[in-house]
Nucleic acid binder design. Structure first.
Length: 855
RNA sequence: GGUCGCUUAGCUCAGUUGGUUAGAGUAUCACAUUGACAUUGUGGGGGUCAGUGGUUCGAGUCCACUAGCGACCACCA
């Protein structure tokens, strides 16, 4: 007998198993001989931190599909990478040098800063890679990419150059979102909105040549320094009399035109709005349309500019206070009102965004020569990309439809610097610096999503690389829904433009992992769960299961330690099934193939039949990307059928070959979900074979499906459960063997053992409790122990239930509409069901008679 | 304002193209047990599938509306 520990020792074994897989070489698709291919370019995590649950959950899904496809005999490439993650990484590193050395990036200078951050990222990447391996992802590390790698960068740059040549990028002065803390422009997507308590200030603007006033309401009085008009709705009768007239801007004594624009809501505030084109997106638009001057009064540090006169140099909040005081002195502040207001904040640092006019680079999403927007919409509409869940297709379509030009220049240092050079009024856009003297390179770097948006093909060596030829378009892309717009939409647009093809055939969204209360996990709240700590405590397999089981795509899920613990117990259960097998016989081994001849007992036929049904169901679910359903089905087979019933019968009527076969197939079926424990067990049994990871996914043997055996076994189970039930409700000592009489019975041994009774063949004595399932009857010698009244009540309830069912089913089976419209299979099944109910009813009535006789 | 979700057992969630008497995990209660099982086994209780209406022979599943919750997008001067 082999000695094997009571549970899987994941703490020491996981690392060895991962090393074994790496050594086997099969993470690398070049080592796999197969015609069919499967590729998933993995989303690169930001190379500035730690592996968190979001990564863990995504990787688990990616790995499950990857391992499944590999076992199905495909050349599988899971291509890992890291993202330089422009702004977030810069923010992290700036904090670091401030804290550790008291330095700013300016102290270091651009070049030195970049070098340091680069080294930092490489170091973090090593650290994170080790973490990624812990979750078990079967990625080809030899192909790992970084967004700043030369080849990857070059492709991204080329795309920019081409787009420039195709008239799809332009540089222009526009109102943009400015983060004063990060010191850069941001795209609309990088701006969040938050509701804050604010004040609405009503300010009186004197009307020129009169003693009247027009009152405007604003939450940002400091911007009035840059006002260039007051606008009202053209249908607002209150202001008709001011057509063609002017107001005087207080504090600056400047004449402002009164303009009419239908974008002004006459029911909001006073219906009159101060227009500051330089510091408000809507005002900017109105300013453009009415040819208004833009006066920048707030600078990039969120301080008042020279144009702000005496308020120059003050921070916006300080200026606001001073301006309000001055207005009060002049009697021009009519009133203040507390309101809730939506403000824009920086996604990364939560600083209030200052909208201001700035010269930036933009991608035109709807250019004349090539419309990124239209092409993407069309590709999605054509259904070339399968969305999981499907409704995210709508979300994507809607977002694309309303897409504006995308600001891609960032005034940070960490990232791809624009391949643009200037000399006087000359501009040069190209991959390499232009020849000649006096050129200076554009200071900006690309929005990080511009390079990651090209990840699907830039990592594969577009356009000539072997991987690109082999694996593009990729098969699968998996990400959290929170980066749907940031990433997947941009990947679709940029890939279509650059390669003419969709980047991936399937787009699968995972939900967010929340805490037990459904709250978002975050460092500041301290409610986060560290996946690595959990792996250490419960094992990677348990963590994997807890992240994907009973979870559906795109739907958020909650995670808490008890849940992981439950899955750890399941891993232990699986382990012990194999431990039992090993201990049951010194010769036990896994069996690859069996034939019908090997099936001896009813239980053998039943379990093999169930195995085949399970294989078919699991494969079907997996092909539909239904991870959770696959697992649920497998779990039921493993625990409720195999462990609870078959192994119990196997203790009575051993059939090592059948058990060995079932366990052989079971390991394969579980492997994509629980790679470590299954590989470990496989290694114990199949020392000389290649790794389980490369074993062939089970094929369904239809001829082994045996409905008759399944039916007979169900009868057996019913009888046994009935006896157990009686024992439980009357607390009959488990040691007491109830005597049972019957004329003739199959599977006597199994019934006796599993329900702890002693069967005597022969006529039953008087006053015995009868039980029955289908045609099988047993008389139990416990008439004295039971409460006849209680049993009759229970039986009565059951009889009534059956009668109701029969009435309902009978009505259905005779309904003409049903007969003419329903599918034949359904009709047959309904009739069969009806017969079954009737049979059952008959049995119950017999039992009722029996009970009456006992009273 | 627009869009998209969610609402199923005490809790956390599944529910595959509409078709058995709606499931699992967990919790709880009773009994048993250290026998492959960091426990496990057996059994019980627990749901008018948010509500209303519709389509259908048949609705947890499809449609409409309502309510509550959530998210996203836009805008809020």
């Amino acid at each position: 007998m082999q000695e094997i520990p009571k549970q899987f020792n994941f703490q020491t074994d996981e690392e060895k198993i991962y090393a074994l897989w790496e050594k086997s070489g099969f993470f690398n698709p070049d080592k796999i001989r197969a015609k069919q291919k499967y590729c998933n370019v993995l989303p690169p995590p930001n190379a500035n931190g730690e592996l968190h649950l979001g990564h863990a959950s995504g990787y688990t899904v990616m790995d499950i599909f990857g391992r499944y496809e590999r076992m199905k005999g495909k050349k599988v490439l899971l291509l890992p990478g890291k993202d330089h993650a422009g702004i977030p990484t810069q923010v992290v590193y700036e904090h670091k040098i401030k804290k550790e050395r008291g330095l700013t990036r300016q102290d270091l200078g651009r070049e030195a800063f970049f070098k340091e951050v680069y080294a930092f990222c490489i170091d973090r990447a090593d650290y994170m890679r080790a973490q990624e391996k812990k979750i078990g992802i079967s990625a080809d590390w030899s192909r790992e990419k970084f967004t700043l790698d030369g080849d990857v960068s070059k492709i991204a740059m080329e795309t920019f150059v081409r787009m420039y040549q195709d008239g799809m990028v332009y540089k222009g002065k526009r109102i943009i979102n400015w983060c004063p803390r990060c010191g850069t422009a941001l795209s609309d997507l990088e701006v969040l909105h938050a509701e804050r308590d604010a004040k609405f200030y009503y300010i009186k603007y004197p009307v020129k040549n009169s003693d009247e006033f027009i009152t405007v309401a604003t939450t940002r009085p400091e911007t009035m320094l840059g006002d260039t008009a007051v606008a009202v709705n053209p249908e607002d009768k209150r202001y008709f009399k001011y057509i063609g007239r002017h107001v005087i801007l207080p504090l600056k004594n400047k004449e402002l035109p009164i303009i009419f624009d239908k974008r002004i809501d006459k029911d909001f505030g006073t219906g009159a709005v101060k227009i500051t084109p330089a510091h408000d997106p809507l005002d900017w638009q109105i300013g453009q349309d009415h040819d208004l001057e833009s006066i920048q009064v707030i600078d990039e540090q969120a301080e008042i500019t020279l144009a702000g006169g005496k308020y120059r140099g003050q921070g916006v909040l300080q200026a606001r206070e001073n301006i309000l005081n001055d207005l009060k002195k002049l009697g021009l502040l009519e009133k203040e009102e507390a309101i809730k207001s939506n403000i824009s904040i920086c996604e990364r640092c939560k600083t209030t965004i200052e909208p201001l006019i700035s010269e930036q680079w933009f991608i035109s999403v709807d250019a004349e020569k090539y419309s990124l927007k239209k092409e993407a919409l069309e590709a999605i509409k054509s259904g070339k990309i399968n969305f999981y869940p499907e409704n995210f297709q709508k979300v994507m379509t809607q977002w694309l439809s309303g897409l504006h030009d995308w600001c891609i220049s960032r005034q940070t240092w960490w990232g791809h610097r624009f391949p643009v050079w200037y000399r006087g009024k000359e501009i040069y856009v190209g991959l390499d610096a232009p020849k000649g003297e006096g050129w200076t390179q554009d200071e900006n770097v690309f929005d990080t999503w511009f390079s990651s948006g090209q990840w699907a093909y830039s990592t594969l060596g577009f356009p000539k690389g072997k991987d690109y030829q082999n694996f593009y378009p990729t098969d699968m892309m998996i990400m959290g829904w929170d980066i749907l717009f940031f990433w997947s939409a941009r990947m679709i647009m940029l890939s279509l433009y650059r390669t003419g093809k969709i980047p991936f055939k399937n787009l699968y969204f995972t939900g967010l992992i929340r805490d037990k209360e459904g709250k978002k996990m975050s460092k500041s709240k301290g409610n986060g769960i560290d996946p690595l700590e959990m792996i250490k405590k419960y094992g990677a397999d348990a963590v994997r299961l807890s992240l994907v089981m009973d979870v559906s795509p795109g739907q958020d899920s909650r995670l808490y330690e008890e849940k992981i613990e439950g899955f750890r117990n399941f891993v232990t259960k699986l382990w012990n099934i194999y431990r039992y097998a090993l201990q049951s016989s010194s010769k036990f081994k896994l069996v690859e193939k069996i034939s019908k001849k090997d099936l001896k007992s009813l239980a053998d036929k039943w379990i093999v039949s169930e195995l085949e049904e399970t294989k078919a169901a699991v494969s079907g679910f997996m092909d539909n990307r239904e991870i959770s359903l696959s697992q649920t089905r497998l779990r039921r087979f493993t625990w409720d059928q195999l462990a609870a019933w078959y192994i119990e019968t196997n203790k009575i009527e051993k059939n090592e070959k059948v058990l060995g076969h079932v366990l052989h197939e079971l390991l394969k079926l579980w492997h994509p979900f629980m790679p470590f424990v299954t590989e470990k067990i496989w290694g114990i049994f199949e020392k000389d074979k290649k790794v389980l990871m490369m074993a062939q996914w089970p094929k369904v043997e239809k001829k082994m499906i045996d409905a008759k055996a399944a039916g007979s076994f169900a009868v057996l189970q019913e009888l046994i459960i009935k006896i157990r039930n009686i024992r439980a409700s009357y607390h009959i000592d488990s040691a007491r063997k109830i005597e049972a009489y019957t004329k003739d019975i199959a599977e006597q041994g199994v019934i006796e053992k599993l329900s702890r009774i002693k069967i005597v063949i022969g006529r039953s004595k008087e006053k015995m409790l009868r039980i029955s399932s289908k045609g099988v009857k047993l008389s139990l010698d416990i008439a004295k122990t039971i409460d006849v009244k209680k049993e009759r009540e229970a039986l009565g309830k059951e009889i009534k239930n059956l009668e109701n069912l029969i009435a309902k089913t009978e009505a259905l089976s005779q309904n003409e509409n049903f007969l003419s419209k329903a599918n034949v299979d359904i009709i047959n099944a309904t009739n069969a069901r009806l017969d079954e109910y009737k049979q059952k009813l008959e049995i119950q009535k017999e039992l009722e008679e029996n009970l009456k006789s006992l009273a």
